[in-house]
Design a protein around this nucleic acid. Structure first.
Lengths: 126, 126
DNA sequence: CGGCATCCAAACGGATACTG
DNA sequence: CAGTATCCGTTTGGATGCCG
């Protein structure tokens, strides 16, 4: 792993660091993961999400959905009925991302206690 | 797994979603990954980081270092010399995290073009 | 039902002067 | 060298009214 350039397929993000940041810029938001996870389970409606994801505001849900849709992680389907019905579902790409996040979940679970301890120790010393 | 009930009101993560968020709360910051990556490569000094990580301010470097240290991801070593010398190095736990992030990197590389395309399409339609 | 628009508060982050 | 303190602009996010 060199600091200098290796073979790059496209233009931006040569270094792994930047690549990771790309992901983080998408799902690093406070609510993105939560919305994503629900959409992976199957089609889900706006109001459903609002109920499931505790604490999210109407505005943030909208913003999160729009961003995920824009990045091609979510598909938005409008049913022209009365009352209106809109369903969101994860794309194949999002499913893969969901699986990739499992590695992180695993890490977090393994080290949850270590981190808690580290914090306690640090806070005690400062 | 029911959508309807929120069986656990606790602050601690039971669901995978919350677990992922725990990680993101640590390394989701603008500079965390960059600093982490450098510290994984070996001991690195404050000024070195300031030079390597383009665009970071002195304040943000300090804050990022303190947070990573607090979470037990970085070890800070002070050499009582003149002039002072402080070295930061990643802990074993951080090394594992670094590896786990590779899965995400891989995803981002595979789908970089897809995302770019999705954005173009979305922006054109709105 | 599914939003968008508006207003406001808090968190995040940059620049830089100062210090042991 | 390795920070801390301060100031200030930007971004993020919550609450809510309105509307098709």
């Amino acid at each position: 792993m060199s600091r200098s350039t290796s073979d790059v397929p496209s233009q931006v993000a040569q270094c792994p660091t930047c690549t990771v940041r790309e992901v983080l810029d998408r799902v690093g938001g406070k609510w993105s993961i939560g919305v994503l996870v629900e959409a992976v389970r199957g089609p889900v409606r706006f109001t459903e999400l609002e109920r499931i994801i505790t604490g999210i505001s109407r505005r943030m849900l909208t913003l999160t959905l729009r961003n995920l849709e824009r990045d091609g992680l979510l598909t938005r389907t409008v049913h022209p009925t009365v009352p209106p019905k809109v369903e969101y579902v994860a794309t194949p790409m999002a499913l893969e991302l969901h699986d990739a996040l499992f590695t992180l979940t695993s890490w977090a679970e393994r080290h949850r206690d270590d981190i808690a301890t580290a914090r306690t120790v640090y806070d005690a010393a400062h």
